[in-house]
Design a protein around this nucleic acid. Sequence first.
DNA 1: CTGAAAGCGCTTACAG
DNA 2: CTGAAAGCGCTTACAG
Lengths: 355, 355
Amino acid sequence: MAMSPILLYNGSIEQNFHESGEYVVTIKDIAQMAGVSFTTVSKALNGEPGVREETRNKILAIASKLNYVPNLAARRLVDRKSDSIGLIWPNKSGLFLYHLFEQFQIQAEKAGYSVMVALGNPTASVRTFMKHFVDTIVVWPSSENTSPEFIQAREAFQGTLLMFNSSPSPYYHTISIDRQEAIQQAVDHLAGLGHRKISFIGYNSEKITGFDRATQLLELEEHPDRLIFTPKNAAESWNRVADMLRKPKSQRPTALIVDSYIAMFKLLKLCKTYSLRIPEDFSLIAYDDVPELEEITDIAVTTVGPSVEHLASAALDILFELRQGHPAEVGHRHVKVASQLTVRGTTRPVSDYAL
Amino acid sequence: MAMSPILLYNGSIEQNFHESGEYVVTIKDIAQMAGVSFTTVSKALNGEPGVREETRNKILAIASKLNYVPNLAARRLVDRKSDSIGLIWPNKSGLFLYHLFEQFQIQAEKAGYSVMVALGNPTASVRTFMKHFVDTIVVWPSSENTSPEFIQAREAFQGTLLMFNSSPSPYYHTISIDRQEAIQQAVDHLAGLGHRKISFIGYNSEKITGFDRATQLLELEEHPDRLIFTPKNAAESWNRVADMLRKPKSQRPTALIVDSYIAMFKLLKLCKTYSLRIPEDFSLIAYDDVPELEEITDIAVTTVGPSVEHLASAALDILFELRQGHPAEVGHRHVKVASQLTVRGTTRPVSDYAL
DNA sequence: CTGAAAGCGCTTACAG
DNA sequence: CTGAAAGCGCTTACAG
């Protein structure tokens, strides 16, 4: 008969094997070896008061000798806290989200949270997080967010929910980006360089509103290509951009603002087609600030948009507050994050574009 | 007195409140509503045989209506399984990893696993996953992997460990990429187009070996720029690339192979500086296949490298096997994934580069 | 200071 | 096909 590994521990403690065949030490084993009840072991291990110093030390010594690892499943079954945050990353969200989440995790880890990300279908992600005791879920929006399944899943979730890029809601905390102001900033900067004939290429309504406002405020020039509306999945709308690029210099705008870095790449391709160059032929500002863009493009693009640092810390500030205060008395927060203009190489004074 | 939310469900099921004050549904609730024992509910929910179809359907309907989410801690306490996979994503891993993990999660979800990703420090990530009862961890390597902390953490982890991009190991399952063969494929393709003077720009030793082999096998031309070694963090090594680009056409290679898409962007920038164009002045093959590159670059680049689909399914195949077989009798697997050449627009017959 | 007992939500023999 | 009971490892009132 094979000897039980237990005998190594010089006592007749219970046997307890992991599926992998490894022996697993529990508080009962420790209790038996220490000659106390497992209640006392639990207290000693958790630093609860009411255990004699001598007893505690003895227990601690045995625990460490046996390489005791607490079974978190058991602990979790009793007290449901995990201090962890789940981030929902919908498919096809691209580089910006990667940087935001990376930044979020760095900041959250410093604050003692553990962070996990779920890719793919947001509804499934919520379920996964619930299963794994995540107590805060942070959502980056996607079209899925308005589906009944998603709504049902988020309602079933009992923890804290925070939604990026969302208008205020009675159901969860929200963070929005001041896109309007971002585009106004961009126009301001261009106007400061003397530009009077500026085009906006994009489709987001907030950004368009910002563009309209700034145009009026600064009394910029009206021209047929002032606004080129390029809705998603409407490739043909880019023909208008092409038309604009083909016009003689005197009829073209001197500066362009694009909606996103995706749009920027499309624009750059078109420019190449028509042998136009940036910033030699146009000044350009792109919304979205993705750090490695500089690595990828051969020009350093002036950008405007929220910084990932600000977005991440805005979200975490809300969570900190909640952690401290009594959740019940804190309503659902809403924070609007400002944008930042980062001037790089693609914005030049209008005099550079003189005929 | 406030009405308990329970009353909505038309039964006097037990009350069970989360610390946040919200109600949590358990199998007991479902049992009471269905008028069966919770043992039966457990069986029905887990697809065990021995439950009448009608009963099962009733239970399933109630469960979904109540938004039941199984308590993993409880389940885990009994059978130490969670059918979930944690992916370790070290900082600064870039686009390729994003696509790989996205693909992995799509395939894993189909097979009934739930997948979570941890960003940042790999050691902390292992701990996070342990805390959350992940039973399989998949690691994308980083320099951290050889640190004592990481090794200790992965040894403490009781589940299945799989390491991408690694040579065989007695401690975990491994998947490697046949980089040597990848570069050989690239050279073969170029040679097939008649190229005899090819440069490799990069630093990975396997890839360099592949290049050397192919060069010998095909008896390609020796020339001073055959291999331009550009180690990471050695910006000055790119001067040699610049030197090569400045040479007169007769002295330059006709085709280039780069190590990674990062290197490709550097090359493209340099080409622009010297008014050289791809593929007009050079054929080009880049290692790494990142789908949105086509969107970003203005040229469709011919690439070689493992497809994310293959890498993901290779990893999952190992996990499937383990799930089915008896873990004890299955050793640690090693799989080598082949590469794929995707011919796009940057490889042309050598005659196009005739003087 | 210490311990017996109840219970967290679930699975799994086992008995009907 | 269904259910009563034991038990996974732990924490937490509660009683001594």
